[in-house]
Design a protein around this nucleic acid. Structure first.
Length: 422
RNA sequence: GGAGAGGUGUCAGAGUGGUCGAAUGAGCCAGCUUGGAAAGCUGGUGUACUCGCAAGGGUACCGAGGGUUCGAAUCCCUCCUUCUCCGCCA
């Protein structure tokens, strides 16, 4: 969420950046500014009225203590008469604040200077490419056929138990999942991230804090009986650990990671391009999250990007890094890199990670601040990235590594799987 | 799920209608003291919004949200949460 004070003081820059982001309702900015002006003058009015009333109440107290009942009663009558006006102003102020908030949540984050301009995914910029495309045997299969050929992932069985998009991993398939999770967690620990195991359901306040609510309500599974949401990513619980927290400046950067299952409704997305593991309702992911000083957040973004790339290199997967263009970035991000792995049998790139800097967009909602020895508490910057999401990694491994002897497991995973081939 | 008792600042803990943004102690920071440290002494030590060029004001916050009152940490209601006992159960 953008800060009103920032909008007020940087109107033209905000408008320029919103246009860059392809935001459709720039007129809202001026509405916000004028509403904020009204809000402040109403607040000033109200507060001077309340200050008067408070002084009156104090006086009544003094009089009572001195036993001057009559004088107190007279003052009481006077003070109570201004109550109605106070109520009117207070109601109006509350209404303005609600309205202001409703406006503010409609603004996306402002893209960073280094973000390429564009509207569609085609305009994303490839900033790095690594690895050779594997040469597949002639009878190469897409991963969903390999999955049934080797009996490691059962989509039909998942259908029966839950529905489409909830696969069942079997035997070596299940073990491969576990191997990847452990590998990713171990690597994250080496890179300085503290492992956390958060709840995989969150309340409304948490959904709001990281920006899933109110904008993306329909994309999360909602447990209506208890008003909880199944997490779409560990980013939500992990970042929300720092909601309403003031971190000591010398404790920055805070680096946490977590493995969780993730749940996404993905309503309305069916068809060939989302076959097999390409898009699921439930999947596993290791997430890395950092809370950092504003001065270093872009350095940290690069560091996180390199870290994610190191995982892909370790898994020997060809990949490319995209810098998302302004219009294709998520609502809450100031800058995002997507990592895409090459899926040889499908002959397409699949997004396996997304690393973003949110600057103060989340921390403003979270009231996540840092404070040095001197000075005021300031909003921290938050970042996160997938490191990594499993299904498409598995898809790529299956497709790229198919051989006559079976699916070859990358050597870094063998200690975790205990087998070299599926 | 049932019964009871609680939720106060960084922590411990007082406060049951006005003198309370909140005693006291600890912690932390600064200064004094010291060869240096400990101890001791002195002072300081929340957040947000807002008015003001500034100095300095105002408002709000004692789990959250409502209410009663001239006035609420204190009384009432709802919710959340913690503890104890009972029930159920990985």
């Amino acid at each position: 969420m953008l800060q009103v004070s920032y909008i007020r003081e940087n109107r033209d820059k905000v408008l320029e950046r919103l246009a860059f982001k392809r935001f459709k309702q720039p007129e809202l900015i001026d509405q916000v500014i004028s509403l904020d002006e009204q809000r402040r003058s109403t607040q000033t009015q109200l507060e001077s009225l309340v200050a008067e009333a408070n002084a009156g109440a104090k006086q009544i107290g003094d009089l009572m203590r001195q036993g001057l009942k009559q004088e107190a009663e007279a003052l009481k009558a006077k003070t109570s008469s201004s109550k109605e006006q106070t109520k009117v102003l207070a109601d109006r102020l509350a209404e303005m604040e609600t309205q202001l908030h409703n406006y503010l949540v409609q603004f996306p984050n402002l893209p960073h200077q280094s973000v390429p301009e564009g509207s569609t995914p085609e305009e994303n910029v490839t900033v790095f490419e690594h690895g050779e495309f594997p040469l597949l045997p002639e009878n190469a299969l897409p991963h969903w056929e390999l999955a049934s050929k080797y009996d490691i992932i059962d989509f039909e069985l998942g259908n029966k138990i839950a529905g489409a998009g909830f696969p069942v991993y079997k035997g070596k398939g299940a073990k491969l999942q576990r191997a990847l999770i452990n590998f990713f967690l171990d690597q994250a620990e080496i890179a300085g991230y503290r492992e956390m195991q958060p709840p995989i359901v969150v309340n409304e306040a948490s959904g709001f804090g990281t920006g899933q609510l109110p904008d993306k309500e329909g994309q999360m599974y909602h447990i209506t009986g208890d008003n909880l949401y199944l997490i779409p990513t560990a980013e939500v619980p992990i970042t929300n650990l720092y909601r309403d927290v003031i971190v000591k400046e010398d404790e920055l950067p805070v680096k946490n990671c977590a493995y969780t299952p993730c749940f996404r409704r993905e309503a309305g997305s069916y068809g060939a391009h989302v076959r097999g593991l390409n898009r699921l309702h439930q999947f596993d992911k290791v997430e890395i999250v950092q809370v950092v000083h504003p001065d270093s957040s872009y350095e940290v973004l690069e560091e996180m990007s390199s870290y994610v790339q190191s995982l892909l290199q370790a898994l020997e997967l060809p990949y490319r890094v995209l810098s998302l263009c302004s219009g294709d970035m998520s609502f809450t991000s100031a800058k995002t890199y997507d990592m895409e792995a090459w899926c040889a049998a499908q002959a397409r790139w699949l997004e396996v990670s997304s690393v973003s800097n949110f600057e103060t967009y989340q921390s403003n909602r979270l009231k996540l601040r840092y404070k040095g020895k001197e000075g005021k508490a300031q909003l921290a910057h938050t970042l996160n990235g997938s490191a990594l999401a499993l299904p498409r990694i598995v898809a790529s491994l299956l497709e790229n590594n198919q051989t006559d002897k079976g699916i070859k497991i990358p050597s870094v995973l063998v200690p975790y799987t205990g087998f070299e081939y599926i």
